[in-house]
Design a protein around this nucleic acid. Structure first.
Lengths: 352, 352
DNA sequence: CTGAAAGCGCTTACAG
DNA sequence: CTGAAAGCGCTTACAG
């Protein structure tokens, strides 16, 4: 391995002490312009790059990086979707713990904006270096954003991309429009023009994440417009509250008449609610069902072949990437890993 | 952050010097049994864990880890499949370079066993700490294995799992049987019992990696046996040399007669050879094509919707995982990351 | 068989 | 504004 230049070499070449070189590298105050300029020239010339391993070894105790994670309280439940990004966070923190990084979990109630506000205030009161959360509530995120900006604390949102325009807004999430197109392609391959399409927009809350569902729906329709423009599919959109799902039977019965194939796209994680109903009214055999997220209900029905496809958002990977990206940003000022589109992963029984 | 115990604390609690603690931790010679036992007891009691960041900082120069990568010579070609695992290797090495890790690329000709042998001898002559390669040639791998064992050099094979039985054989590859089942499921969803199935086993070499193709084929058939046992699909297997592919036209014409759907599974990366033939003999419209690997030809045809599905083996990820896993093994003696099944990733135009 | 000391590359409190 | 020295946790050559 050829000798890499270190701070010592730079000091030697610049004719200053390593302390001064350190000040220049880290933009600390107290260096004359002339010296700084000279040292910077040497740095550029030699291609010197700070050794972060050494840096973090020194700083691990005195400047430990603490990341606050603000998730729905379901993150505590091992079976729940919101536990998965937490697992990813924990994995990344474990990998980096010798570099002096730790995290703390804060939770809120997704049906209660105030609980989000309260938790975020608590986070800002503690000295934290970064925040990872989910943009459920537009106004509250906006206000958190402003306060965090003042303290120079970066925020990484996972799961959903909302359209706030500030700087330092980082998003690690799937492109919902694109995932809707994937669903469109898959169902179209199967149903073609021989049957009907059904989009279920099941609502169980009214937060920002609902936007994901609408974009997925829109992506689904776009697929047909863009990819098979001459085909005008019969797409029925059913928007319904979870609790009213049983009242839909009559509506669905219309599809039974000719036993034509039925492609069903559920725009959120609750595809598992449908198979029972489809069986009850005798639509199961002619249906192909695609939904989102590998929750226990969906997994079981994939295994039983009652759901055919699941689009996975890789929530664990989202949490993992958020921590890794933040670490890179906080130690190297590189933020390109903090804006990250998660690939649309297609899961069926055999690659579960 | 609560104070983690370090070597200093262990020394203090054991009443010995840190030098002795280091000897015990790293199983170095020259420690009395009594001292070792006592220190080990303290280590167990405190839950001490070596700080690898500090360790690697100290060792980066004197004990740099060097990984030899032995790939087909096509790894040099940016457009080629074998360039991808190399990119993954490079990425992982870049992430770990401050920990004192480097790699060197050696190449061989896949049509020439001797070139593999020659390159592997050269690797063994240099002092290397680990080898990453592809098991193209069973005998040569076996012999490499034996020599590497004697030198205590771990080998990680990517791409293909072959059935050698030694210890220290690590494989990072996709489960070919399983990926064939995925292909079966996808085509069955589309074709059902309304059409015919075609499996193309295109041969362009006779190395061990050909086993992948056979297992994929076998997985494809297994899908039908296991998942739809009452359905006896009409599956035609076509084994052909690449160069003879055009002579197949007559055989394929048989499928044209009734315009029934045709599900085509190409068990290797050369699905891109088929669309032109299918178009020429008028089978394109009724065909659904699934193949392997995101090479430029397949990508282009996915974009044009002339190939419908590609199964990706994530070659870049394979190379990346091999390096990360080796690093963990060489620094922490943990080898669980070195046996790794790559998920079966399903790609279509919209999630390319 | 064991310990004291130097050093990996960086950071910081202190002295000037 | 600048430098000399100590130290992060581990490793190693050297002395005993």
């Amino acid at each position: 391995m050829k000798d890499t230049v270190g701070i010592k070499k730079i000091a030697e070449l610049s004719g200053v002490s390593i302390g001064t070189v350190d000040r220049v590298i880290n933009n600390r105050s107290g260096v004359s312009k002339k010296t700084a300029k000279h040292v910077n020239a040497v740095i550029k010339h030699t291609g010197y790059k700070k050794n972060n391993v050494a840096s973090r070894l020194k700083l691990a105790k005195s400047k430990s990086i603490s990341i606050s994670v603000l998730f729905p309280k379901e993150a505590y439940l091992e079976d729940h979707y919101w536990h998965l990004p937490l697992l990813g966070v924990q994995k990344a923190v474990a990998e980096l713990k010798e570099m002096g990084i730790s995290h703390e979990l804060f939770v809120f109630d997704i049906s209660n904006k105030k609980s989000f506000k309260r938790a975020s205030q608590q986070i800002l009161k503690n000295a934290t270096n970064a925040i990872i959360t989910v943009p459920f509530f537009a106004d509250e995120c906006q206000s958190l954003r402003e306060q965090a900006d003042a303290l120079n604390i970066p925020i990484v949102y996972i799961d959903t991309k909302h359209d706030v325009n500030q700087e330092q807004n980082y998003f690690i999430s799937q492109n919902s429009l694109q995932s809707g197109k994937v669903a469109g392609r898959i169902l179209y391959q199967i149903i073609k023009d021989r049957g009907n399409y059904l989009v279920f927009n099941l609502i169980n809350n009214n937060t920002e994440t609902q936007k994901n569902n609408l974009e997925r729906e829109s992506g689904f329709k776009s697929f047909f417009e863009e990819e098979v423009p001459n085909f005008k599919p019969n797409i029925l959109l059913i928007t319904a509250d979870d609790s009213k799902i049983n009242s839909l039977e009559k509506k669905l019965l219309a599809f039974k008449k000719d036993h034509t194939p039925l492609g069903i796209f559920v725009t959120n994680s609750r595809a598992y609610l449908l198979p029972k109903i489809l069986e009850k009214i005798g639509l199961a055999a002619q249906s192909t069902l695609i939904g989102y997220d590998l929750n226990p209900g969906n997994i079981e029905l994939l295994r039983e072949n009652k759901i055919q496809f699941i689009i996975n958002q890789k929530p664990e990977f989202q949490g993992y990437s958020a921590v890794k990206g933040l670490f890179k940003f906080l130690t190297e000022q590189e933020d390109e890993e903090l804006n990250h589109t998660i690939p649309v992963e297609v899961i069926l029984k055999e690659n579960l």
